[in-house]
Design a protein around this nucleic acid. Structure first.
Lengths: 166, 166
DNA sequence: GCTCCCAATGTAATGTTATCACATGAGTTA
DNA sequence: TAACTCATGTGATAACATTACATTGGGAGC
């Protein structure tokens, strides 16, 4: 099951990567007084295991197999919690979710503006961080008197690994 | 039915605006040998009448009332055609559709990179055009060896009109 | 101890968005 | 006419998301 990942040039030590991410999230929950309950924690782990976007029903299937909830609201509520606190992001173009892979969940006081590169070949989602400073979209909005509250930046294409493979 | 629009500060001559847009699209279809069939034309008109994003099922309801089709594929096929040729854009964050309001559908040889400002108060969608030149997302992608094929830029917030109103 | 409250979860039902599969019709070409 | 293509008609189903209400379990205050 992990072979595909292990043979991938982009592979890394998944277990350590996941453990570190979970540790960061746990630390933030302790500090902020948030409850990282079993369901919430497991949903985060599932998303960390995949480095791909997973749909709510894909997550739900896994939870069901583990006896952690069987109805859609279970998954959506956990995702709402994780997104609210920046541990997970929603990918609008896929109606799916990915774990936050920047260190930003360790430094919430410097909010990052995430952007996503979605590979249509391997379905992997690369999260990049762009500076919070004003870019072209913000400039255009300012000119129109529009107050941006939330911005979505997603790009579909082919990642470096898949380009080399073809 | 048009009162709400007519009393709006952002109102303009809708009929002329729609007619001009339809004319541009018709011209491009003639040149490119595309069939702007009754259903496709009507879907475009419906989207031009609203200056808002409309869901596929909202469009379908209108078509149904006019006897132009009653099943989802009718609406989705027309939207696919209109999007494929740049006459309509999909708003990913709303799972909805808007007519293209830039003049770009008259000048396809200079493809625009549309960005959308979505007002959460009045639901109006403002389409702005950003230069095709490389911005921060493109720079980040290049650095990662990622080849962008399609980018989504959408921002939710409050438009100038609604800000003044509150 | 207790009750009250609140946050999280369990669960059924439903709502919304999108696609598939296959049949039909209209026009073009051979 | 036959073969083909493009658009449409239609029923069924898949995929994504929310509502509403019941239940549980752990503090806070008495």
């Amino acid at each position: 099951m992990h072979d595909a990942v292990a043979s991938d040039p982009m592979a890394h030590d998944h277990d350590a990567c996941i453990a570190a991410a979970i540790d960061r999230v746990e630390a933030r929950c302790r500090v902020a007084g948030l409850q990282l309950t079993p369901v919430r924690r497991r949903v985060l782990e599932i998303l960390l295991e995949e480095h791909r976007a997973l749909g709510a029903y894909g997550i739900l299937d896994r939870l069901r197999a583990e006896g952690l909830g069987s109805q859609p609201p279970v998954a959506y509520r956990a995702l709402d919690f994780l997104m609210k606190h920046g541990f997970v992001h929603r990918i609008e173009t896929l109606n799916a979710f990915v774990a936050c892979t920047t260190g930003a969940n360790a430094a919430p006081e410097d909010p990052h503006m995430p952007a996503f590169l979605i590979c249509r070949a391997c379905r992997r989602v690369i999260e990049t961080t762009v500076p919070t400073a004003r870019g072209r979209l913000e400039t255009a909005a300012e000119g129109a008197g529009f107050a941006i509250e939330h911005a979505v930046r997603e790009a579909e294409g082919v990642c470096a690994t898949c380009r080399r493979a073809s």
